[in-house]
Computed example of a mutant assay.
Amino acid sequence: MTTSHPDAGTTGRAPRGAAPHLFAWAELLRLPALFTVPGDALAGAAAGGRPGPRTLLAVGCSLCLYGAGMALNDWADQAEDAVERPRRPLPSGRVRPAAALAAAGALTAAGLGLAARAGGRALTVAVPLAATVWAYDLVLKRTPAGPAAMAVARGLDLLLGAAVSGRGVRPALPSAAALATHTLAVTAVSRGETRGGSPAAPLAALAATGALTWALTRGPASARAPRGAAHIVGVLTAAYSATSARPLLHAVLNPSPPLTQRAVGGGIRAMIPLQAALTARSGALTSALLTAALAPAARRFEKKVSVT
């Protein structure tokens, strides 16, 4: 999920009128992908009770830890990127490696600080989440456990939102499992971004998308869901399925690096309607619509900065 996307703005050149230094940091932190983060906490809070003021602290923690993971990822991949992706911020010299590592540490500390302010239960989830992020980037990414570690991180991120809600994390476990399943599939596909590969990974991801689509359309999961929720869930689920499935099908038919990269980008973008559908199923329609509204912003920024 963090390799390059050549046809999605990885030229290393800032758009006209943009400050080059700020643009380099936007690339490093994968600015468009940050829009896929708030929906984790909102979906978790909806499943665990109702989004409230402390949900904003959970969202802030999630954004900090996600940004830390992006900066740490590029710091850990310096040697590989110098050969395969020399236009990235670190190998191109636009961001110093020491600055990227310092940013990862500072963002991690800030995220844990926000979790502590949100309460003991939030910190109990945030600590293993931060540990998983660092373990993935420094150790697990290139091992068979890499996709599973990424899936665990995303599931924990959703449970972070549930931890600050009234009912705790247990009611949010099905939503966390759904998001983790999608993340596992997309991360497995991402391993063929630069070199291509067999159609097995995108085919498995396509099957996962179909299974999640079927599960989401079985009706609102919560008795608290208001009238009309089923229709909204259906629309959001259709958006999820279309965003994820189409590029995956192309990658199945031709698992070349460009089509695999598009499939990964589609999988990342599909997280937003998936989060929104999960939130709507829990009865929090306002939060679901707010989550869905992040998709156009992510798409707009993706035209200038790569999402992967």
Rank of each mutant, 00 (worst) to 15 (best):
S4L: 11
H5D: 15
P6S: 12
D7N: 13
D7T: 15
T11H: 14
A18V: 14
P20S: 14
E27Y: 01
A33E: 15
F35M: 09
V37N: 05
G39Y: 04
G44H: 06
G48P: 10
G49P: 04
L57T: 01
G60W: 01
L65G: 00
Y66G: 01
G67T: 03
G67H: 01
M70T: 13
A76G: 10
A76D: 07
D77Y: 06
D77V: 02
Q78D: 02
E80F: 14
P86M: 10
P91W: 07
S92W: 13
A104Q: 11
G105Q: 05
L107Y: 10
A115R: 04
G120I: 04
R121S: 15
A122G: 05
V125M: 01
L129E: 10
A130L: 12
A131I: 05
T132Y: 05
D137I: 02
V139Q: 13
P144I: 07
P147S: 12
G161R: 07
A162V: 10
S165H: 11
H182D: 05
V186M: 01
V189D: 08
V189F: 02
T209M: 11
L216C: 12
T217Y: 00
A229F: 02
A230M: 00
H231R: 15
I232Q: 12
A238K: 00
P247A: 12
P247L: 06
P247Y: 09
P247H: 06
H250R: 14
H250Q: 00
V252A: 03
S256Y: 02
P257G: 00
P257H: 07
Q261F: 09
L278D: 07
L278V: 08
R281K: 11
G283E: 01
A284S: 15
T291G: 08
A295E: 13
P296G: 10
K304T: 15
